[in-house]
Simulated assay, not measured.
Amino acid sequence: MTAPPRRPTQRADRSARSELYLIGGIHAVVDGHAIEVPDGGSRLLVYVALRGGRVDRRQIAGTLWPVGDDARAAGNLRSALWRLRGAGLDLLEGDHSWLAVAEHVVVDVDQVGAWAARLVAGRLEPGDLMPRPGWSDALDLLPAWHDDWVVFERERLRQRMLHALEAMSRELVARNRQAEAVDVAMAAVAAEPLRESAQRVLLEAHLAEGNQIEAHRCFARYRDLARRELGVSPSPELGALLAGYRGVPAGAADRAGMTGRASMTERTAGARERAQEHRVDLVSRSRYPSAPPARQGAAAARSHTGDSSPA
């Protein structure tokens, strides 16, 4: 009879790379093997990983186990460390006063944060403009966790991601990769539809691709959403983006509703007026062939209105 596989109980080889994943579900990879993080140690591991660097043990214990005295909180901390090591997750290091993520451990949140910082700063590395899996999960880190320290880190990562997506879209436009720029900008808009800077890069991507109608539609949807949800209108600068592209004065695009309906109405009215003038001119020439053009038009107008008085 074959013995069941043993669960790793000894400390991992610290010369080997280990990976800790917090985005899209908590798990770790040690020596190429995926290991689930036990419930009794997950909060400790996540807290230290999100704080970064060395974290005071008393701060950890007081934050994670606020009920009871310091001795009890310190005991809970030791118990959580024991559970992690018993599961083969020797991912933390420290001494009697502090804990930190071990140097051989790579944390996905740190990698995403570094990627976002490079994009925002314009210091790109090969592959930074390629689509990354888990964008949507990174925009909502640990959604089922409601601790204050998780909520803060979730919002911080979300803001980093949104800034990175906006910078990425602009960089793609600059490299004449407009279709990819639209996709990235739409990801930012989907994450936060009321974020005007995300809407701006989406408009810029559409305009760079020559799709004015798409840009107008996006602006109209955003304008209606902002008015409905917040009771405000988009900034004049956003309207000027489209107005300037069309070569009309800033603000005129927003006054026209940015849907194209107003400008189309104006063009239609102008065409009708020109057609009416052309018809009057034809009538005047047929009835008064010898009259000068100005008198022909006046005579035709009197004839059209029934006025028979002399000019």
Rank of each mutant, 00 (worst) to 15 (best):
A167R: 04
A240R: 00
A185V: 09
A167D: 06
L194C: 10
V182N: 06
R175A: 13
R261C: 06
L238W: 01
A191P: 01
A250E: 00
L238I: 08
P249S: 11
A185T: 14
A226E: 03
V182A: 10
V173A: 04
R261T: 13
G231L: 06
V248F: 14
A185P: 05
C218H: 10
H206F: 15
R227F: 11
E204A: 08
V173K: 01
D254H: 03
A179R: 07
P234M: 02
A220S: 15
A252W: 08
R255T: 05
G239V: 04
A187I: 13
M168C: 10
A252M: 08
A174Y: 06
Y222Q: 04
Q178L: 12
S233N: 07
I213M: 07
R246A: 02
H216T: 01
A179Q: 11
V201G: 02
M258F: 06
S235A: 15
Y222D: 00
V184S: 07
P193L: 13
A250G: 12
A220K: 13
E166P: 00
I213D: 14
E166D: 09
T259I: 02
A174N: 13
M168R: 11
L202A: 13
S233F: 00
D224A: 15
R200F: 02
L202Y: 02
V201R: 04
S169G: 15
A187M: 14
M168S: 13
P234T: 05
A250L: 11
M258K: 00
Q178F: 10
R223A: 09
M186Q: 15
V182H: 03
R223G: 02
A220W: 10
G260Y: 12
L230D: 03
A179L: 15
Q199Y: 06
A220C: 08
P234H: 01
V189L: 02
R200M: 07
E214R: 10
E214D: 14
E180A: 15
V201D: 01
E180L: 15
P249Q: 07
H216D: 04
A215R: 02
G239H: 02
V201Y: 04
E214C: 05
A226S: 13
E209S: 14
D183F: 09
A181I: 07
E229Q: 12
G247C: 12
G239M: 00
Q178G: 11
R175C: 12
F219M: 11
R261L: 13
H216Y: 06
S235R: 14
M186A: 08
A240K: 01
D224W: 14
S235V: 11
V201F: 12
R223F: 02
A243N: 00
F219D: 03
R177M: 09
G247H: 04
A191Y: 03
S235M: 13
C218T: 11
R200T: 09
S169C: 14
E180H: 09
V173W: 00
Q212P: 00
A174I: 00
R177S: 05
E237K: 09
A208F: 06
L172P: 03
G251H: 01
A188F: 01
R255G: 10
H216G: 10
R227P: 02
G260M: 07
R246P: 00
L203H: 00
L172N: 04
R223L: 08
E229K: 05
H216N: 08
V248Q: 03
A174H: 10
N211M: 09
L207I: 14
